[in-house]
Design a protein around this nucleic acid. Structure first.
Lengths: 217, 217
DNA sequence: ACATTAAATGGACGATCGTCCATTAGAGAC
DNA sequence: GTCTCTAATGGACGATCGTCCATTTAATGT
């Protein structure tokens, strides 16, 4: 059974599937994330990752120089994937109202594409070890990304008229992100009882309170 | 240096400090939590815990039957301590207004007694491994405790007058808890930049939006 | 003082950890 | 084909893991 699936790398060169360092790198990262989701970070060992990926035990040291670097790369990949999917899901026309843009972010964050058993387990696993793992800590915060600016900008547009309180926009942004964090925790804690719709509506209700007249229904 | 500090157990019997199983049990739990806060769950081993506690390596198996049970006991202890301190801090007179009771919970949860580097690291570490550790999962949720009922009751009193929306009380409760979760994450992520006052005010603002007229200033 | 019972010790044990490297295998150049 | 270079393998290695238990130590009862 020697099947040589043809692959192309970024430069279009043809490669056989038997030798593809980059693909194996990705394979290891994928296997790492899957293992963490399955059995938890604590039990995620080099052997287990290799076993799942189908590659040999030496590959991790070869491609990443050690387990720690692989974990960091996995966290980075996971984070990047989240933001990529978030972008994809919130790609409304540029003439969308700020309210709709905010709600798009919320609905995306709580959609099954982003919020699912696998992602929640991985996300919280990484966050749990972040404090003792500087490399991972860099990818366990939502706070310093384009996403924050998207929200801030939208809230700024909404608040424009009555700009009495200088903290309103910042609070709306931070509060929305905090509420979303809380929803992820709820999902992790009780996946059966979790309702995406109710969660979206809850956040909408809070925003409607902050900006009376907007975010209705 | 043989100092025999006198201790009394729950029944008032005198004991020398050299032999005190219960005290050693607590010592192990304490050492476990401290170790987790210091170096993370991943690196928290039986040897490390014993080293920190000053007790011998056999004690964990003797008192808890294994590492897993110790971890579970530590999670349980940590949770119990949180709720005990929360009760202590929110012990207002029973004639306090519902708004004040809600704010007391929020201020307590964000006070240094409950929200500090040690507690945040431990809390998130436990949550991170909860999905693969059923014994710990039972203590990593805020959702099924007296605290929830305290909030729900207070919000119910506040909403009493205009009870048009049946979900208002539930949403206020869940939303408040979610916001608090989010604040803990913010604290973990950036302890330097975190401000307890601003966090309290942010949540108050959201509640003021939900219940116009209440939670002012 | 001695016997009895429970607490505490610390080392033995096999299993598994993560790292590293001598070796093999595959792809392209010539 | 042969040469060269890199990808990939899989086992060796010492360290550490968690568990268990024979032994020692301390407190209590008689």
């Amino acid at each position: 059974m020697e099947l040589l699936n043809r692959v192309k790398d970024s430069k279009g060169k043809k490669r056989s599937s038997k030798r593809d360092p980059e693909a194996n790198r990705q394979l290891l990262i994928k296997a790492t994330l899957d293992t963490i989701a399955d059995i938890g970070v604590t039990d995620t060992s080099v052997s287990r990752i290799c076993e799942r990926s189908g590659l040999s035990r030496g590959m991790i040291h070869l491609h990443f120089g050690g387990k720690d670097n692989l974990l960091t790369a996995a966290a980075q990949h996971f984070s990047a994937q989240y933001y990529a999917e978030m972008d994809r899901l919130t790609d409304l026309g540029s003439d969308a109202s700020p309210e709709n843009r905010v709600m798009a972010v919320i609905e995306a964050d709580l959609s099954e594409a982003l919020l699912n058993p696998r992602s929640t387990k991985i996300w919280h696993a990484f966050r749990g070890i972040a404090s003792s793992h500087p490399g991972i800590a860099r990818y366990s915060s939502t706070q310093d990304h384009k996403l924050v600016e998207t929200l801030r900008l939208a809230f700024k547009e909404i608040a424009q008229k009555n700009e009495r309180d200088p903290n309103l926009v910042g609070d709306a942004t931070a509060g929305t992100l905090a509420l979303l964090e809380g929803m992820w925790v709820n999902y992790l804690t009780d996946m059966q009882g979790f309702s995406r719709r109710r969660s979206v509506d809850l956040i909408r209700r809070f925003l409607c309170g902050l900006f009376p007249g907007n975010f209705k229904l």
